[in-house]
Every structure is written in structure tokens, then in C-alpha cells.
Deep mutational scan, measured.
Amino acid sequence: KPRTPFTTSQLLALERKFRQKQYLSIAERAEFSSSLNLTETQVKIWFQNRRAKAKR
């Protein structure tokens, strides 16, 4: 499956949310993903990858 090209504004929103909170609840993820026009899976995986990056 092809890589999702996130827009700059989506990335800024994702990073801002990640700084507030590294783990989103299912409800938060649902609301946040629809506000960004992304799927919940895209947001879930982005947060997983971002947490992995933060550990490195």
C-alpha cells in the first residue's frame, strides 16, 4: 500500500497533538482523524511511528 503523503498542515497538527499527548484514546483518534481528513488507521500508525522516533 502506498505511503500517505501528509500535507504540511496535517503534519503540524499531528506534531502539536503529539506534544500535548503521546497516546490518543479511540474517541480522540476518531475525532482528530476526521478533523484532518485522514483515516483513523493513518493517525494510529503516525502516532506509533512518532513514538518509536521519540524513543531513538
Rank of each mutant, 00 (worst) to 15 (best):
T39C: 10
T8V: 10
Q42F: 02
Q20T: 12
V43F: 01
N37I: 02
K55T: 10
T39R: 04
K1V: 07
K55A: 12
A30K: 06
Q42M: 11
K53V: 13
F6Q: 01
Q22W: 07
P5F: 08
T41R: 04
I26H: 13
I26V: 13
Q42C: 10
Q22Y: 05
P5K: 06
N49C: 08
L24R: 01
F32K: 04
T7M: 00
I45R: 05
W46V: 02
K1G: 09
A13L: 11
E28A: 01
S35P: 05
K1Q: 02
N49H: 07
L11W: 03
L38M: 11
T8F: 12
E31H: 02
S34V: 09
S9L: 10
N37Q: 09
P2E: 15
I26P: 15
L24A: 00
T8M: 14
T8C: 04
E15L: 00
A54P: 10
A52H: 06
T39S: 12
R56E: 15
A27N: 08
A30Y: 06
Q22T: 12
T39A: 07
R19K: 14
F47S: 02
K21Q: 13
A27V: 08
L11S: 10
K53H: 14
P5A: 12
K1Y: 08
N49K: 04
L12G: 10
K17N: 01
A27G: 12
W46C: 06
E15V: 02
Y23P: 02
S34H: 13
L14I: 00
A27L: 09
T41C: 13
A52I: 09
S9G: 12
S34Q: 12
R50I: 00
I45E: 15
S35C: 08
T7R: 01
F18W: 07
K21N: 11
S33I: 02
R16M: 10
S25I: 04
A54Q: 10
K17A: 07
Y23Q: 10
T8S: 14
K53T: 13
E28G: 04
Q20A: 07
E15W: 06
K55P: 15
E40M: 01
A27I: 07
K21I: 08
E15H: 00
L11E: 14
K17G: 03
L38D: 02
R51F: 03
R51W: 05
P2A: 13
T4A: 09
Q22S: 13
L12Q: 14
K17D: 00
K17M: 12
A54V: 07
N49I: 03
K44A: 07
S9I: 12
S9Y: 06
